[in-house]
Simulated assay, not measured.
Amino acid sequence: MDSDASGDVIVVGGGVVGLTTALELARAGRRVRVWTRDPTAGTTSAVAGALWWPYRIDPVERVGGWSLRALRVFEELAARPERTGVRMVEGVQADTRFDGLGSWAAEVAGLRPSTAEEYAGGEGVWARLPLVDMPVHLEWLTERFLAAGGLVETREVADLAEAGAAAPVVVNCTGLDARTLVPDATVRPLRGQLVLVENPGVDTWFTAAGGSGETAETSTYFFPQPGRLILGGTAEQDTFSLEPDPEVAEAIVARCAAVRPEIAKARVIGHRVGLRPTRPEVRVERERAPWGGVLVHNYGHGGAGVTVAWGCAQEAAGLAVS
């Protein structure tokens, strides 16, 4: 059945990638349902930091375009932060050479090498970037999708063919679950642990992937969000546990406090763990499904799902309606 034979589309997956893709399809005039196993607040997306930055994601030749399309959307949404959850916030990406960034960097207004006052630990870049309060943003996406005529159904999917039996076009935005649903053994979890503290007055973000005394599984970052400061983090490959590790949490606070000493005395108000759905390359692709319908894949975004969400959603939606 051709995708044009019906306006019905089922998007499987209710995280930021699934909801953004569903919204793009609904805006294009399709009748869209989102099937999600977990309520939006229970998805991995709800745990994210979430700073716009192309982080641990390939293929490089496509990521820049996806990221920049998302950046333009976020810049517009930042005009209504209380509704959309998006704010433009200044900060430093540490241990990063400006001339070592991809070609996309030239399209980011104001991105430049950091000064010694902004970061005294070595080379870094300064930028004013979208910082997304994910619970608010996911709620906004859901509201916009419903207002566009979409439906959200909470249901567990054991086989993508279940969606194929209900609509001629299925868009697979299942993240880590694509490992079994496709199946795709190249999808692997990258565990991230966060600590939430009362903000002691930090109004800029900071990130450092690795650093002195750190391993590939650790990083240092803090993001000021309304009502809290998010501290991170970890990047543990092939670890499925969603239980916070107290020792890891202590180490996260200590690393962040080494950058901003006032964090050391901040009261801890919560812990979060999420499993980033990594893959050697993001998969945005259309194929003829085994059941005869159209199947579009949009998964494998790792730790940059928010960063590329709008770009990948626009491409996936185009594939679904072509």
Rank of each mutant, 00 (worst) to 15 (best):
T218S: 14
L131R: 03
P183A: 00
A166D: 04
A158S: 15
V282Q: 09
G164N: 01
L23P: 07
R255K: 09
R69Q: 14
E153V: 15
G100S: 07
N199I: 03
E250N: 09
V308I: 15
L138Y: 06
A147H: 06
A313P: 08
G232D: 04
V47Y: 02
G14S: 06
R112K: 08
I230C: 15
A289N: 00
D177Y: 13
A78G: 08
P277C: 07
D2W: 13
R155T: 11
A163C: 10
A50G: 15
Y119H: 15
S241V: 01
L231S: 06
F222Q: 08
R283V: 13
A264F: 07
T207I: 15
M134L: 12
E156Q: 11
F74N: 03
G175C: 02
T218G: 02
D4A: 15
N172S: 12
T307L: 06
A165Q: 13
T84P: 12
E24N: 11
A26E: 09
G64H: 05
G85H: 10
G211D: 04
G121E: 14
E156H: 11
E82L: 10
R83D: 15
V273S: 03
W52Y: 08
N298Y: 02
A249T: 02
G29P: 08
V169K: 02
S3L: 10
V273Y: 05
G15F: 10
R179T: 02
A46F: 07
V182H: 10
E236F: 02
V157I: 14
S219C: 11
E281A: 15
L19G: 01
E118S: 06
A22C: 08
A166L: 14
E315N: 01
G318S: 00
A289Q: 00
A257C: 11
W310I: 03
V132I: 15
T234V: 08
P226V: 03
V92P: 06
L101I: 00
G292I: 12
T218K: 13
V202H: 02
G303N: 10
T40E: 10
Y221M: 11
G13C: 09
E82N: 04
G305R: 02
A26G: 14
P290A: 11
A79E: 13
L131Y: 05
G292M: 09
A209D: 14
A309N: 14
A70L: 00
A105R: 11
S67G: 07
G213S: 06
T115K: 09
E262A: 14
V86A: 08
E198C: 03
A313L: 09
W126G: 03
R286I: 02
W310K: 05
C173M: 05
V92I: 14
L19H: 13
N298K: 01
P244E: 01
Q237V: 13
W291Y: 04
G302R: 01
A216R: 12
Q193H: 06
M134N: 03
S45P: 05
A148Y: 11
P290E: 07
T218W: 13
S241E: 05
T218D: 12
D177C: 04
E315F: 02
C256T: 07
W53M: 09
V169S: 05
Q93S: 06
G18P: 01
